[in-house]
Amino acid sequence: MALCLVAGGAVVARLAGVAAFTLAWTHSVEKTAWEEDWTVTPRGLVVEQARVKGSGAGMDPPPGAQLVDGAWRWRPALPALNEMTLRRSGAVADWRLCIAGTCRPLGDYAPGEPDPLTLRACEDVSP
């Protein structure tokens, strides 16, 4: 499988061989780090864990979340998603996509900062 970034109905980046990734961002009001770990499967994108370093302004951890190393951690109860659409306003820092421990802004993968940008599992096409 691969992770595809789609804008305007067209694939703008195909990240071959990506089996897992972390989506990270900073909350626009609280200025608090938020991260979600995802796997790329034939069923779609599956969230494995969410982490937030703080609470407030609509980001309170759910019941059952555990405070570990200064971050609230939990597994969101979501089914596999066919796709995930991200809005990119320019008013806040870009989303960060972390693969194998290296984090980069989504703009590094999708030049021109298209909005919205959709993430989805796709076939791993070899050149």
Results as ranks from 00 to 15, higher is better:
residue 49 Q to F: 13
residue 121 A to P: 06
residue 120 R to C: 14
residue 12 V to H: 03
residue 75 R to M: 04
residue 38 W to N: 03
residue 63 P to W: 13
residue 111 P to W: 01
residue 39 T to V: 10
residue 114 P to I: 02
residue 60 D to H: 14
residue 43 R to Y: 12
residue 33 A to V: 10
residue 110 A to M: 13
residue 33 A to G: 13
residue 17 G to L: 05
residue 64 G to N: 13
residue 68 V to C: 07
residue 80 A to K: 15
residue 106 L to M: 05
residue 36 E to K: 01
residue 40 V to I: 09
residue 112 G to A: 02
residue 127 P to A: 08
residue 103 C to A: 13
residue 39 T to F: 00
residue 37 D to N: 12
residue 111 P to I: 03
residue 111 P to Q: 03
residue 116 P to K: 01
residue 82 N to K: 15
residue 8 G to S: 09
residue 5 L to D: 00
residue 8 G to C: 06
residue 80 A to S: 15
residue 89 S to C: 06
residue 85 T to Q: 12
residue 21 F to I: 07
residue 2 A to L: 05
residue 24 A to H: 07
residue 54 G to K: 02
residue 118 T to R: 11
residue 44 G to H: 03
residue 125 V to T: 08
residue 20 A to C: 11
residue 38 W to M: 06
residue 83 E to D: 15
residue 92 V to S: 08
residue 101 G to I: 08
residue 61 P to N: 11
residue 105 P to S: 03
residue 27 H to L: 09
residue 42 P to C: 03
residue 33 A to Q: 13
residue 113 E to P: 01
residue 16 A to N: 06
residue 90 G to V: 02
residue 71 A to M: 13
residue 60 D to S: 14
residue 121 A to N: 08
residue 27 H to E: 05
residue 79 P to K: 12
residue 10 A to T: 07
residue 30 E to F: 06
residue 14 R to T: 00
residue 118 T to G: 06
residue 75 R to V: 09
residue 50 A to L: 04
residue 67 L to M: 10
residue 107 G to Y: 02
residue 60 D to P: 11
residue 46 V to L: 13
residue 53 K to R: 14
residue 120 R to W: 09
residue 99 I to Y: 07
residue 92 V to T: 11
residue 16 A to Y: 02
residue 45 L to W: 02
residue 113 E to V: 05
residue 50 A to V: 01
residue 50 A to G: 12
residue 65 A to W: 12
residue 85 T to V: 14
residue 55 S to K: 12
residue 102 T to F: 15
residue 71 A to R: 03
residue 74 W to A: 02
residue 28 S to G: 14
